[in-house]
Computed example of a mutant assay.
Amino acid sequence: MTTRDIANLRVYNQHLNYNKFKKPEEVVGYMCAMQAQEYALAKWAIGLRMLSATDKAVEKAMTTGTILRTHVLRPTWHFVLPEDIRWMLSLTAPRINAGNATMYKKHELTDAVFNKSFNVFIKNMQGGKQLTRTEIVTALHEADIATDDLRLTLLLMKAELDQLICSGARRGKQFTYALLDERAPATKAIPRDEAVARLVSRYFTSHGPATVNDFVHWSGLTVADAKTGIEINKGRLSNINVEGISYWMSADVDLSKTKKSGTYLLPVYDELIIAYKNRDAIVPVKFHDKMGAITFFPTIMVNNQVIGNWSRNIGKKNIDIELKPFDKLSKAQSEAIETAVQRFKKFNGLA
């Protein structure tokens, strides 16, 4: 097995070119968590893994709460299912809060301030009320809680991590927050090792082949956690060694079904890129000096290899796509990319 095989298997296991899903929540559930701070393109990340996807269908899932958007890993925004959000936060929040401790102290956010803000959230959101950030600022100011600088962001994130609030339905283009108890039913708490095992199993199943360091990068947990989870799941996971590097993935993968072909317009922070500490497998050696552009901008992938960046300008009746290949495109590459462009336009209802 070669490094290129690693790339083909990742594309396959992330369901970009095999057995696509029918519903947004099926994608998110399989992937366990999907990075989602660039919201419009994060919806496209879900769409890429669906048979027949539209932006409206993914937005509807957010509106109805079949998928949620919150801070749950590292920390940054992620899509996650209501039935997963509590056990995941119970596992990851302590490390995120520890990492945020210096910022909490810098902005004078004590337990007393947090508790006072939480009471404001409960008072103003209970009964199904979903508030925009502007409305939340007003409510906090009425309670004499300052929201300048990063204080608002930190207050909201702490409330998310403490399983008090999560995403609500968007109101126009504005995001809202809602009480988690009203968006996600209560679930039974599970032991920490069981939660670690669950996260490890779902990561390596959906993202494998991946290394221990890849999991640590993605989850924000420790190497010890990764090894514990792998040991618990040793019957479900298989280990392969490529060029001296140890990778883990589901033991049920049918290697004969992996494909070397496939052309995609990947969104920025797509799981195929951002979920790994080392991205060499999906980037040709000659483009390794482009890692910054590949990490922080949307990318073009042809035959399971990144070959450039792209950007879009969406109008009311059309979408302009600008291709930024790292090298001259062949005719076959250009034709394949055009098909991917049309798929993106169709997703946005402007094909």
Score class of each variant (00 low, 15 high):
Asp162Val: 01
Leu164Cys: 02
Leu164Glu: 02
Ile165His: 03
Ile165Gly: 04
Ile165Lys: 03
Ser167Gln: 05
Ala169Arg: 11
Ala169Phe: 06
Arg170Gly: 12
Arg170Ile: 13
Arg170Ala: 13
Arg170Pro: 13
Arg171Val: 13
Gly172Ala: 08
Lys173Trp: 12
Lys173Asn: 14
Lys173Leu: 14
Gln174Pro: 03
Gln174Leu: 15
Phe175Pro: 13
Tyr177Val: 10
Ala178Cys: 07
Leu179Pro: 09
Leu180Ile: 06
Asp181Trp: 06
Asp181Thr: 13
Glu182Trp: 02
Arg183Lys: 12
Ala184Phe: 01
Ala186Ser: 15
Thr187Met: 07
Ala189Val: 09
Ala189Asn: 10
Ile190Lys: 07
Arg192Ile: 11
Asp193Gly: 06
Asp193Gln: 12
Glu194His: 09
Ala195Asp: 00
Ala195Asn: 04
Val196Pro: 06
Ala197Val: 12
Arg198Gly: 10
Arg198Ser: 15
Leu199Asn: 02
Val200Thr: 12
Val200Asn: 07
Tyr203Val: 00
Phe204Gln: 02
Thr205Cys: 05
Thr205Gly: 04
Thr205Glu: 09
Ser206Gly: 08
Ser206Ile: 10
His207Tyr: 14
Ala210Val: 00
Ala210Ser: 07
Val212Asp: 05
Val212Pro: 04
Asp214Leu: 12
Asp214Met: 12
Val216Phe: 01
Val216Thr: 06
His217Val: 05
Gly220Arg: 02
Leu221Trp: 02
Leu221Lys: 00
Leu221Phe: 01
Val223His: 13
Ala224Gly: 11
Asp225Ile: 04
Ala226Glu: 03
Lys227Thr: 14
Gly229Met: 03
Gly229Gln: 00
Gly229Arg: 01
Glu231Asn: 13
Glu231Tyr: 09
Asn233Trp: 02
Asn233Cys: 06
Lys234Tyr: 02
Gly235Ser: 11
Leu237Glu: 04
Ser238Val: 12
Asn239Pro: 03
Ile240Trp: 01
Val242Ser: 01
Val242Phe: 02
Glu243Asp: 15
